[in-house]
Write a protein that binds this DNA or RNA. Structure first.
Lengths: 190, 190
DNA sequence: GTCTATAGATCGATAGAC
DNA sequence: GTCTATCGATCTATAGAC
């Protein structure tokens, strides 16, 4: 029997898949073991504190991905309209290629809710703030920018629920497109 | 010790509370027993198939509530603008008074997902369809009405996630208000 | 119709060989 | 670093007294 040696980031990737498919609580160590092919010993080698460590590692990776591919581009892309459109496209691709599940949103329900409440809060607050700042750079005045950004993030998150409920990726694509259009039409010069 | 005799609807109400607070999977029979004060024997008397029966009973009650207080009013209220505004108000009140949790949305994640997939699909499809029909009665043309309705339901559902994440009911109130305004401004004569 | 006691399965986590 | 074996706790569900 082959003994596969893997590093922590392989394990985190595999865990993220299981958690997206089964949820945090349903994904028991037995199914994690089966679906990832990683033995119990290895899991506890990489994540000594067990399931909580695994959840934290997965959320940290998601957070890093959004920092790099969503939040930072929103802040640094010169043209606000371009920044908004890129966000819509990137986020749509991300979620449709990952079972239409946002693991931070999943963390707002269930047992471990409290343990990660601050991380969840910061993830959504940072997303909304980065988008609102982009809108302000594009000429949208303060209270409107904050509302528009919050509504946009809410609509995207709700689209994930509907896409799962209706089993239809087109829901995500349509919402991404219309959210993009709505945000761009709020920018000056449109 | 008092022996309280209760009927099934009392049990369903108590169960809904537990599921909203703890989620479907986290709410084990032990915590259900503790938090509802209903003994194990009684629970299996009312719900012979166990937890799945409990989940179905709770979802059925939620479904009935929405049929009566949301879907039917959308279809029968004469003035479309009035119907839309009533929906926004009623839904906002419902969710903010129930831990900001939509149990049908919660069912799109986790273990029992498959068992209730059809009920979940129908709940959201009926909501979107009823709202789209109201918009059409108000003069909105077909493709736009469907998109507007879907986006509205998505935004409301996403607002629940953000309200939990940011621990702030104002998110729900703000989204309800702006969704109402956006829908009304799409109706003819605005 | 409600209770307690408990069966049987599965859980998360640990130990120790290799 | 990975494995298997296994612990104690907890889970859902059942049985039987009242």
């Amino acid at each position: 029997m082959a003994r596969t040696v893997l590093d922590r980031s392989d394990a985190v990737r595999a865990l993220a898949g299981v958690f997206r498919r089964r949820g945090f609580e349903s994904g028991s160590l037995s199914v994690i073991q089966q679906e990832t092919g990683i033995g119990r010993g290895s899991l506890y080698h990489f994540f000594p504190a067990g399931k909580t460590d695994m959840a934290r590692a997965v959320l940290d990776e998601v957070r890093r991905w959004f920092d790099e591919n969503v939040f930072e581009p929103l802040r640094t892309t010169e043209d606000p309209a371009e920044a908004v459109t890129a966000m819509a496209r990137v986020v749509d691709e991300y979620f449709t290629s990952r079972n239409r599940v946002c693991l931070f949103a999943a963390m707002t329900l269930g047992d471990e809710q409290d343990a990660f409440a601050e991380d969840v809060r910061r993830y959504f607050a940072d997303w909304i703030d980065a988008l609102a700042a982009t809108l302000r750079r594009g000429g949208v005045t303060e209270p409107a920018a904050a509302d528009l950004a919050l509504d946009a993030v809410a609509t995207i998150q709700g689209a994930l629920i509907l896409a799962r409920a209706l089993d239809d990726d087109a829901v995500c694509h349509g919402v991404a497109q219309r959210t993009n259009a709505r945000l761009r039409s709020a920018l000056t010069g449109h």
